[in-house]
Every structure is written in structure tokens, then in C-alpha cells.
């Protein structure tokens, strides 16, 4: 695989993931209505809360945590949903205050791109190294002429024929 082919593969991976993981700046296609019923509100609250880390707990989302800070964050999510903000806008607010640490799923941006694309980059490098090694090995096998057989003397020939006769 040539160098430019590798970069084409890398670009395809990058483009694919940028579609899977949109940035929080993007808005939801259908914003929630200003007055939503309680079930829908709870469902939206759960959706957002489950993606945000409780800043003072160990690996708990603010939906699961009963820490005061988590409860206060849930209240803010509720208020913002009622005000008509989308889940992505609310997540963007928390990221602007606490950084990427606050979201469980790192955004596809900056150094995080390495996290998302790293395994595929390593896989691509491995594939390139493997293909190069295999090609080199194959070419070496083709290029090396067969080793000429050493001539055998009369004594060896007689012994071989004797062995063959004994097999019959």
C-alpha cells in the first residue's frame, strides 16, 4: 500500500466518524415544544442526565447520583428543557463550564480524535506493515533460484536403489 492510499483510507475513517459523532454545537432537528408534558420532560431529562458525569462521584452519571451537585445539575437541565433548549445545547452548556470531563462520551474533536480514530490508525499501520512484509517475502521467494542438486556418486546411487528395492 502506498503512502497516499493509506491517507485516503484514514480520511474515509475520519469522515465516517465525524458523521457518527456530531459536535454539540449542532442542534436537534426538532426542538422540544415550550410546554411539554411531564413524561416527555422526564424522558428528555433522563436522556441528557445519563450522558453527563457527576463531577463529585466515582463513574456515576448525574441521573444515577444523589449528590447535591448532581441534583442541582438535574434541576438546571429541567429548567433549560422547559425553556426550549435541546439536549445538545444543554450538554454544550455543561461542557463550556466543566470541559470534556463532564461528558461520558468524548467529543470527536482535538486530541479526542486520536481516541476515536487511534485504533483504526493502528489497524491501518498494522495492515500496511503486514502487506509490505508479505510482499517482500513473496518477492524474495520468487527471485531466489532453486538450489542446484548436488551430484551423487555411484555408491550413493546403489544404496538408494537398494533401499527402493527393499520397499517393494
Amino acid at each position: 500500500m502506498k503512502l497516499h492510499t493509506f491517507f485516503i483510507v484514514l480520511t474515509i475513517f475520519t469522515a465516517t466518524f465525524s458523521r457518527i459523532e456530531p459536535s454539540f454545537a449542532q442542534t436537534d432537528p426538532v426542538p422540544p415544544p415550550l410546554s411539554m408534558d411531564e413524561d416527555l420532560l422526564q424522558s428528555k431529562m433522563k436522556e441528557v442526565s445519563k450522558t453527563l458525569r457527576c463531577a463529585v462521584c466515582q463513574s456515576e452519571s448525574i441521573w444515577e447520583s444523589n449528590a447535591t451537585l448532581a441534583i442541582q445539575m438535574r434541576d438546571i437541565i429541567r429548567e433549560r428543557l422547559i425553556a426550549g433548549e435541546t439536549p445538545n445545547e444543554i450538554r454544550a452548556y455543561f461542557v463550556s463550564r466543566y470541559g470534556d470531563y463532564i461528558v461520558f462520551k468524548p467529543r470527536f474533536r482535538g486530541i479526542n480524535m486520536l481516541l476515536w480514530g487511534g485504533p483504526f490508525i493502528l489497524l491501518a499501520i498494522g495492515a500496511v506493515v503486514l502487506s509490505r512484509s508479505l510482499r517482500k517475502w513473496t518477492l524474495q521467494k520468487d527471485e531466489v533460484p532453486p538450489e542446484p542438486l548436488a551430484p551423487i556418486d555411484e555408491k550413493q546411487r546403489e544404496r538408494i536403489e537398494e533401499e527402493l528395492r527393499s520397499l517393494k
Partner: peptide
């Protein structure tokens, strides 16, 4: 009140 200032300032503790 309700932690709004601390969350607005990204306070952890």
C-alpha cells in the same frame, strides 16, 4: 441558591 452560580462557574467543590 440551587447551586446555579457554582455550576455556572464550573465549580467541583
Amino acid at each position: 441558591l440551587k447551586g446555579k452560580i457554582s455550576i455556572d462557574y464550573g465549580v467541583y467543590g
